[in-house]
Structure formats: C-alpha cells, structure tokens
Simulated scan of single mutants.
Amino acid sequence: MRTTGDRIRQAVSFEVIGLLISVPLAAFAFGYSLEKTGVLGLIGATLATLWNYIFNLGFDHALKRFTGSTHKSLKHRLIHAFCFESGLLIAFLPIIAWWMGIGLLEALLVDVSFALFYLVYAFVFTWCYDTIFPDTDAETPPGQ
C-alpha cells in the first residue's frame, strides 16, 4: 500500500500537470476567457484532488482485498479511470453550470469534455506514476 505522503504527492502532481494542460485547452476549445476557465479549473482541481485521494485509497483497498495485491492490470486501470472520472463528472456538473453561468446541457458538454480529457490523462498519468514511483505492494499475484 502507498503511504499517505505518496498519495498526496500523486494527487497534487496529477492536478498540477492536468491544470497546465486542460485550462488553456478548454479556454481555446470553448471560447471562454482564460481567467474564467482558470478559476473553474482550480475549483475542479480542488474537488478532484480530494476525490483523487479518497477514491485511490478505496480502490487500492478493494483491489488488495479482491486480488491480494494492489497491482493494476490493464483491465483494472480502465475500470479505475472510468470510475474515477464518472464520480467526478457527477459532482462537477452543477459547479460548472453555476460558475460559467450556463445551462445544464451546455455544462454537461463542458463537463463531458473535461471528463474525456481526464479519462485518458488519468490512465496515462497513473501508469507513468506507478512506473516512476512503484508501489512495493503491487507485485503481480500468482496466476495473473
């Protein structure tokens, strides 16, 4: 299992790198100001950082309980990324609508765009992070 410090490093680095990529991309794609999109990104990053820590802790505990290890196969990584982003999508939708002053349908488009970006980003980032900072408890269980 990862330490608390390692989980915090993972969550913060995930959000900082994600913001540096997603905020300018969203401002350009949707024609919003960089300032408005930047604040939305910071709100989302704060929400996502908390969710990241809680979700990853729960996911690792569940994975260890069911498989005996925190090793993530390709299937586990896909499930991880999809579930993480689905939970965040639900929580972030009303915040987007409120902050951007748009309707729920337009907010859903923005939210889904962020989620699709972060779905791919979460998969790539987590795989890279696990490679750079391996979890000593993540050895492949026998038979997998």
Rank of each mutant, 00 (worst) to 15 (best):
R2H: 12
R7N: 12
I8T: 14
R9F: 12
R9I: 07
F14Q: 03
I17L: 09
L19R: 00
I21W: 09
S22V: 14
A26Q: 12
G31S: 04
G31F: 05
Y32D: 02
G41P: 04
L42H: 10
A45C: 09
T49D: 07
L50Y: 11
Y53P: 01
I54Q: 14
N56F: 07
N56R: 11
L57F: 13
H61I: 12
H61P: 01
F66K: 15
F66H: 15
T67V: 00
T67K: 03
T70I: 00
H71Y: 09
S73K: 02
H76M: 12
R77N: 15
L78A: 10
I79W: 08
C83E: 15
F84H: 03
L88W: 05
F92E: 01
I95G: 07
I95A: 13
I96K: 04
A97K: 00
A97Q: 07
I102N: 04
G103L: 00
L109M: 13
V112N: 01
V112T: 14
A115Y: 04
V120W: 10
V120G: 14
C128I: 15
D130N: 15
T131L: 11
I132M: 11
D135P: 07
D135M: 07
D137H: 11
E139M: 11
P141S: 03
P142Y: 11
G143K: 05
G143R: 06
